[in-house]
């Protein structure tokens, strides 16, 4: 094998050990993290910043429990490289209740007792809040389109649908 400095002239292999100081805007506050650029946002949130409200589910963007908002759009934080959200507004389950839509969603969730085991629910609430922010009065098809990718193994789907509709009504 060739020496590393020789190879680095033309090698493009990402070096997983190098870290960078990144500034992230999370829930309205800037915070600095020293992590590899390709670390998934979810790891930064949970393991570096200790914000454990966002859950790890599948790790391949298939279950939706790790959903957070980036500039208002729901994204799966488990596969989002942290460098890709630099300079963007990240919102997590810890702060979504401070927005009017997020507060309505959380209240509707409590009113209808949507939660069973609860593991997926931060992802469900983040998806529902993003849906209602973009589409204040969704029909069933809109709800399916926005929520189908977020899985609940307890099967609380009917209560989720009802709570989303409840959240659209003035309280």
């Amino acid at each position: 094998m060739i020496a590393r400095d020789e190879a680095s002239v033309w090698r493009r292999q990402p070096d997983g050990e190098e870290t960078d100081m990144l500034t992230l805007n999370i829930n309205g506050k800037d915070c600095e993290v020293n992590v590899p650029e390709d670390m998934p946002l979810l790891w930064v949130l949970r393991d570096v910043l200790g914000m454990t409200g966002t859950k790890f589910g599948c790790g391949i963007a298939q279950c939706g429990v790790c959903t957070v908002h980036v500039d208002g759009q729901p994204i799966r934080s488990c596969i989002m490289p942290v460098v890709a959200v630099r300079g963007k507004k990240i919102m997590t389950i810890e702060a979504v209740g401070q927005t009017p839509t997020g507060a309505n969603v959380q209240k509707a969730w409590l009113d209808l007792e949507v939660v069973q085991c609860g593991y997926c629910q931060s992802g469900q609430i983040m998806c529902a809040a993003a849906l209602l922010a973009a589409t204040p009065h969704p029909n069933d098809a809109d709800i399916d389109a926005a929520m189908a990718g977020t899985i609940c193994r307890c099967g609380t789907y009917t209560r989720i649908r009802a709570a989303i509709k409840r959240a659209t009504q003035p309280s």
Partner: peptide, 11 residues
């Protein structure tokens, strides 16, 4: 459509 919204749309 159902498969797409459940498995594809999120990415």
């Amino acid at each position: 459509l159902r498969v797409f919204e459940g498995a594809c749309a999120s990415c």
